[in-house]
């Protein structure tokens, strides 16, 4: 077990795919459908957060900012799920405290590679 991972996306298919990939990689996965939902579910420490940016109720950028201000989340790797067309969003996410990003369309191999990079 590699610890807990929080996956946040309003798209069921995308969230399930990411969650499935992480579970295969040995994570205990918590799924949330938007920022609010994620903040409610992230009660204990998690080892990894992957979040979409465009979501109803609370978007990814706001979520990242809120998580970073929580005790225990200062150094948690937080990855954004973005598309290549969102270059400015990457910078915005980075400024909010994101560690990195995963580019959509989602490719599990790529995610695993990025995990190796951000998880010591």
């Amino acid at each position: 077990m590699r610890g807990k991972a929080l996956v946040v996306d309003d798209s069921n298919s995308m969230r399930q795919m990411v969650a499935f990939t992480l579970a295969e990689a040995g994570f205990d996965v918590i799924e949330a459908a938007n920022g609010n939902d994620a903040l409610a579910k992230a009660t204990g420490p998690v080892q990894l957060v992957i979040t979409d940016l465009n979501m109803p109720e609370m978007d990814g950028i706001t979520l990242i900012r809120s998580l970073r201000s929580r005790p225990g989340f200062q150094h948690t790797p937080i990855l954004m799920l973005t598309t290549e067309s969102q270059a400015s969003r990457k910078a915005e996410g980075k400024a909010a405290g994101a560690t990195g990003w995963i580019v959509k369309p989602f490719d599990p191999e790529k995610l695993l590679k990025v995990l190796d990079r951000v998880l010591a």
Binding site: S11, T83, K104, P105, D107
Partner: peptide, 27 residues
């Protein structure tokens, strides 16, 4: 915002399943 999000979600998934036409049109 809502409309954009819908188009965006379709595009995001389409690429993963090799639905090239779908991703290009949603783009």
């Amino acid at each position: 915002d809502e409309i954009f999000r819908s188009a965006h979600s379709i595009k995001g998934g389409a690429g993963t399943f090799g639905l090239d036409e779908v991703s290009r049109l949603t783009h």
